[in-house]
Design a protein around this nucleic acid. Sequence first.
DNA 1: TCTATATATTCGACTAAGTCGAATATATGG
DNA 2: CCATATATTCGACTTAGTCGAATATATAGA
Lengths: 108, 108
Amino acid sequence: MEPRLGEFEQLVMLALVRLGDDAYGVAVQREIAGRTGRSTGFATVYTTLARLEGKGLVASRLGDPTPERGGRRKKYFVLLAAGRRAVRESLRTLRTMTRGLDASWGAP
Amino acid sequence: MEPRLGEFEQLVMLALVRLGDDAYGVAVQREIAGRTGRSTGFATVYTTLARLEGKGLVASRLGDPTPERGGRRKKYFVLLAAGRRAVRESLRTLRTMTRGLDASWGAP
DNA sequence: TCTATATATTCGACTAAGTCGAATATATGG
DNA sequence: CCATATATTCGACTTAGTCGAATATATAGA
């Protein structure tokens, strides 16, 4: 059984899915903030990413320097198979709990 | 802004919505376990319910004894307005993060 | 070549949420 | 009144959420 994803972990995982090849810390924070309006500190995202990696749900690699005016190298993240399963499982659980609810609930 | 719901808090809140007038601790546990296959101890549900009440998202009342062979009185829970908003907000957030994803993700 | 500055990640620390074994409470039937 | 079914509470610990401040590292230009 895959480990369960916490509430924010789910959002981070979904951001990784959406961002694909351009998924690194700052971009994840922007994706979540921009889309949902929920703006966390960057450190929150990095802490979560580190824990997800520790659980074997995602993997990271260091990117090359880019020629866009300075800055540290980016650390890119991708979902591993176990991570994909965990995301699907989370969504499935939510779906079974919201299925059939009155439309006013805006079931996802 | 409503308080954010944790992952399990969301499930408990949705169980309350589904159960309506018959929402008490044991029933909530059964609803979640039966529907999602996730079986937690009863204490997990009660702890969560107590915290949700502390945050003003749900309210409780003690039921009358029922004539079904013994047992302590049930404690019924209902969502308050703030609780309904919190649930909608959680679902909305999830929806914005899953919207448009490939169908294989089974977006909720 | 240094240094100001932009970009990005890590550290340390604390609060909130998830989890459950065991104890406790309270109805009812016999 | 007590054995038993049903239901909730206690105490304790682990995991997830959160962020201010520190640190690292590219590049452009003096």
